[in-house]
Design a protein around this nucleic acid. Sequence first.
DNA 1: CTGAAAGCGCTTACAG
DNA 2: CTGAAAGCGCTTACAG
Lengths: 338, 338
Amino acid sequence: MSSTTRKPRLAEVAKLAGVSPGLVSRILNGDPTVRARPETRAAVLSAIEMLNYTPHPSARALRNARTGLLGFALHHVNDPIYAEMVHRAQSAAARRNFSIILLNTAELAERGEAFRNIVLGRRLDGLLIQSGFGAGEDVLHEIARTVPSVVFSANPTPDMRTMRLDDARAAATATQHLIDTGHTSIAYVGAPGVSSERRFEGYRSTLAAAGLPWLPAVNGGWTADEGHEATVRFLGSGAQVTAIVAVTATTALGVHSGIVASGRRIPDDVSLVSVHDTWYARHLNPPMTAVTLPLGDLGALAVAELIDQIDTPRAGETIVADPEPLLVVRGSTKPIQA
Amino acid sequence: MSSTTRKPRLAEVAKLAGVSPGLVSRILNGDPTVRARPETRAAVLSAIEMLNYTPHPSARALRNARTGLLGFALHHVNDPIYAEMVHRAQSAAARRNFSIILLNTAELAERGEAFRNIVLGRRLDGLLIQSGFGAGEDVLHEIARTVPSVVFSANPTPDMRTMRLDDARAAATATQHLIDTGHTSIAYVGAPGVSSERRFEGYRSTLAAAGLPWLPAVNGGWTADEGHEATVRFLGSGAQVTAIVAVTATTALGVHSGIVASGRRIPDDVSLVSVHDTWYARHLNPPMTAVTLPLGDLGALAVAELIDQIDTPRAGETIVADPEPLLVVRGSTKPIQA
DNA sequence: CTGAAAGCGCTTACAG
DNA sequence: CTGAAAGCGCTTACAG
């Protein structure tokens, strides 16, 4: 049982190799000033190997004021869009010997104590923050100013590196597709938070530019269940739209089922476009037309960006990425006069 | 800019309160032998408050040989079932002042180096391991023996605390539902790994017990895309089944779309039951009948169990939880003679 | 070029 | 009951 064997320390490696602890440390960290004889170096390396030595991260962290830990503050880990993002962020971090700690935005925003304990208390090296999904985000932004951070947000936030997602443009792309295929009566199902407001604005302005009427946002929330309820209510109240733009992939799924539950057909009676594409979109019946934003890539990019920032601090508002939204046409939309 | 202000140390709190560092530490940690005068204690507390003091976790970790970090090794964070589990595990951990670090099983199994650096190197206090989904898991089990762990698995693994999911029973419940509603020609769409094999066995034995024929598992993989391809091939090859049991929620979605793509109707031509229920099941068209296993609860429970185990080590194979699979009947199944 | 020593910020036996 | 001191395992200026 190796479970009872204590882990070897640097000093033991040094003793075994017949050198000082300092030298082992220097070799381990690739100190360029080290000019140890090849056989000395080999002895150190083989001692490390022999003892299966691994440096103690807490000791290192204490010395270096670096934990190798990145926090990822999310509203919904179980949102497929962000799950993918987390997944990619984790891989990118691991490749650079960082680890990702999961943080819950709601918990953080609610309990100042949690924020203090976990974010400040853990001495995280950096923070990724999903923003724009609700109230209480001021707290998060405050945190973001005390530690290197990348914020995923529609609004470039002053004094913060933000990874911009062009919400408005994505919604505009979705809306334009519907206009291009002859729809003139188009609704938007949204959710609370700035992100949705921006998408609504993309929807509204695109319709306005085309000289078409727009409707106030139908409040659907960020989940499929909420999207479903909102859609059933909306269509049940006699709304005569021929097309809907949904704020995100989860909500869109609920809108999808809500349209069906209301006894209308997709796309014959109502066309549907989702902002955000995800793995399940193509498996729906009918498959969901969607606007792709490469959030997985952004997750990886944000980690790279964040680690760079930790190494060489830079301040200020920076738009790091701003990918072009891509339309993927599937079965949930069809031209109005077809 | 508080970003430049150094964080206060224990010693500074002590100075401000006019006591020794040791006493502050004792008060902070609720040492029961402390009998400080109320005003002394108050002075300490208010000094902490005033400086917004937070103990340095690396210093503590170094002293206590405890990091407060739990690793969660997963195959697919973006699988909705496990995303939910991670979410709940995170909450449960946060409540006990532990943090969850995301680990990728595939990376761990592939690169021994990653395993060494991250799992041993990080000195994680404990490990949650999703098992049964592929090859190379021996490495994981080896790790699990060196640090307090809880393994999610069908098979209680020797020398490990395992949180058992009764895969076989869940699949049996799904299959029995189909038998009860008159189906006699039922297929199973599976995936690689022990988990799926166990579910297959549940399927097979239930049919056998009913005197009905069973088919070899259709290999669908753990994703919707794979489930889709496998189903299209399977049905395209002229299979005459009237019902399918799918290994998990993601695969089931692909089977769903695969049936539709093959020109058959759900449930009129083919009924479909998913092992595992998830948030999107009810939003499909038609909604998916599923067998619920409370994986979210298990995630939370596993964390509690793990932390207990860290506090008071216990060894050996233990079946920690074994919830009853619950059938949720929705629109994707219907009686054969209806 | 390498070794000895101090110190990162805690906690806790040991004295008093 | 509380303080002074040692030590957790590293890293790195400082000597040599």
